[in-house]
């Protein structure tokens, strides 16, 4: 019963025009690691269609664009899921997407529904994916489901190694 109700709500929303004046609030915790050689992780934040696991857009990529040696692009492939589904067809630096790597701790972000990948995102069910890769470290992707098109309660998921708690809320 509940399911059919939410389906009705969903189809009603899907029929509407995609101009949704909403923002996506995301908190990503960059874990503090006690290791001998620490480099801040490369992080990609992107939207995934849960039905076929394709990418529906990239919101942010944190990498070392200032690196003299390779402008940071040499290691973008290490965020391997994002690279395969989205990154490899993009050019870098990417306006409104590229950013510097961030220090350990919670990183609060707000992605405007009027810009970038969210601007034309159709209402519906998605995953927000936070994928991190660290030099002399590992790689991990964390998925948090969200419904685009109406304000919702925050949802949280937590990684085990390279990604801390990720909280997503449609405002």
């Amino acid at each position: 019963m509940k399911r059919s109700l939410s389906l009705l709500t969903f189809s009603a929303l899907a029929g509407a025009t995609p101009a949704v004046a909403a923002d996506l609030a995301v908190t990503v915790e960059v874990p503090r690691l006690t290791v001998a050689e620490y480099h801040k992780p490369y992080v990609s934040i992107w939207i995934e269609n849960p039905a076929d696991a394709t990418a529906a857009g990239t919101l942010a990529v944190w990498y070392d664009a200032g690196s003299k040696e390779d402008k940071g692009v040499k290691w973008l492939k290490d965020m391997r899921q994002w690279w395969r589904k989205a990154g490899r067809t993009m050019s870098f630096p990417a306006d409104g997407i590229s950013g510097a790597t961030r220090a350990p701790g919670p990183q609060k972000l707000v992605f405007s529904g009027a810009k970038g990948a969210l601007k034309d995102l159709k209402p519906g069910q998605y995953n927000l994916v936070v994928e991190a890769a660290r030099e002399v470290g590992g790689q991990e992707a964390v998925r948090v489901p969200f419904v685009w098109g109406k304000p919702g309660k925050p949802a949280t998921a937590k990684g085990a190694t390279e990604v801390g708690a990720v909280t997503v809320a449609v405002k």
Binding site: K71, K74, R88
Partner: peptide, 8 residues
């Protein structure tokens, strides 16, 4: 086999 960037 999978690389990124101009300096590859």
């Amino acid at each position: 086999t999978v690389l990124s960037g101009e300096g590859a």
